[in-house]
C-alpha cells in the first residue's frame, strides 16, 4: 500500500516536472513565434521582389552587413565611441544629479537656494537647446556630452531628492534612539531608504541616454553609431542603417538589463524586487 502511494507520488511529480518544462518551452515558442514569422515574411517579400532593397533590404543582407562591418573593425570603432560617449555623459550628469539631489534632500537651505532654479531648467527639453549648445561648444565632443549630461541629470536629481524626502521618520527616530547620528545614520537609514527611488531615476536615465545619444550623434560626428547610420544614408546603404538601428535597440536592452540587475541586487530585501 505504502509502495503504491510512493509510486503514485513519483508519477504525479514527474508528470508535473514534464508539464513545467513543456510550459516553459511552449511559452518560449509563443513569445518568439511572432518575431520569427515577421522575419520570414520580410525575407520572402524581399526575395519575391515586393520590397525594394532601398526601402528595406532582406534580413540576410542586414546580417551580412553586420558581419562585414565587424570584420573590418569599423563596427567596433563606432560602438566603442558611442558607448564611451554614453557612459561619460551618464557619469557626469548622473553623478551631479545624485550629488545635488542628496544635498537638497538632506539640507533645507540648499533646497531653498537651488530647487526653484533647477525646476525651471528642468522644464526646458534638452533637445531644444541644440542650437545654443552648438553655438557654445561648437560641434565637437563637449557639445554632445553636455546634451547627454543635461538630459540624464534631471531624472536622477528628482528621484534622489524625492527618495531622501520620503524616508520614514519613524525609522529615523528609532535609529537616533539607538545612538546613530551623522554619517552612520545617513549610511544605514537614509541612503538605503532612498535607494529604490534613486534606482528608478537611474533606470529612467539609462533609457533616456540612448535617445539623446542618437540625436547628438546625428548633429555632426566623426565616429559613433549615429555617424555610421547618417553616413550610410548618404550612400543609400539601407542595410547598414538597419544595423545601426538594431545596435541601438540592443544597447538600450542591455542598459535596461543592467538597471534591473542593480535593482535586483540592491533591493533584494524587498519582496517586490525578488
Amino acid at each position: 500500500m505504502l509502495c503504491t502511494v510512493a509510486e503514485l507520488g513519483q508519477t504525479v511529480l514527474s508528470n508535473f516536472v514534464r508539464w513545467l518544462i513543456g510550459m516553459n518551452l511552449r511559452k518560449l515558442l509563443a513569445q518568439w513565434a511572432l518575431p520569427f514569422a515577421l522575419i520570414c515574411i520580410w525575407e520572402i517579400s524581399a526575395r519575391v521582389g515586393w520590397l525594394s532593397s532601398r526601402i528595406l533590404p532582406e534580413p540576410l543582407a542586414v546580417g551580412r552587413a553586420l558581419v562585414e562591418l565587424s570584420a573590418s573593425g569599423e563596427l567596433w570603432l563606432h560602438l566603442r565611441t558611442s558607448l564611451l560617449r554614453a557612459l561619460t555623459g551618464f557619469a557626469i550628469g548622473g553623478g551631479s544629479g545624485l550629488a545635488l539631489g542628496l544635498l537638497t534632500g538632506t539640507w533645507r537651505h540648499a533646497e531653498t537656494a537651488l530647487d526653484t532654479t533647477l525646476q525651471m531648467i528642468r522644464n526646458i527639453p534638452a533637445l531644444a537647446l541644440i542650437p545654443l549648445v552648438i553655438l557654445w561648444f561648437g560641434i565637437d565632443e563637449s557639445a554632445k556630452l553636455f546634451l547627454l549630461a543635461l538630459g540624464v541629470f534631471f531624472p536622477i536629481y528628482l528621484n534622489t531628492f524625492h527618495g531622501i524626502r520620503s524616508v520614514d521618520p519613524a525609522l529615523i527616530e528609532m535609529a537616533r534612539s539607538y545612538g546613530l547620528r551623522g554619517w552612520p545614520l545617513f549610511r544605514d537609514v537614509v541612503l538605503p531608504s532612498a535607494l529604490p527611488s534613486i534606482l528608478v531615476g537611474v533606470r529612467f536615465s539609462l533609457g533616456l541616454v540612448w535617445v539623446l545619444l542618437i540625436v547628438a550623434e546625428t548633429i555632426s560626428a566623426q565616429a559613433g553609431i549615429g555617424f555610421m547610420t547618417m553616413n550610410a544614408r548618404e550612400f543609400l546603404q539601407t542595410d547598414v542603417v538597419l544595423v545601426g538601428v538594431l545596435l541601438y535597440a540592443l544597447l538600450g536592452k542591455l542598459a535596461d538589463v543592467f538597471a534591473r540587475g542593480l535593482e535586483k541586487y540592491y533591493l533584494r530585501w524587498n519582496p517586490a524586487y525578488r
Binding site: A170, L171, M174, A175, Y178, G179, L180, P184, D188, V189, P192, S193, L195, W269, N270
Partner: peptide, 19 residues
C-alpha cells in the same frame, strides 16, 4: 515602539546589532 521599526534592508542580525 508600537511597530517593530526594523530596517528592511538589513538582515535580522544586522538589525539587532544596529549602532
Amino acid at each position: 515602539f508600537q511597530e517593530p521599526r526594523l530596517l528592511p534592508w538589513k538582515n535580522v542580525l544586522d538589525n539587532v546589532s544596529l549602532g
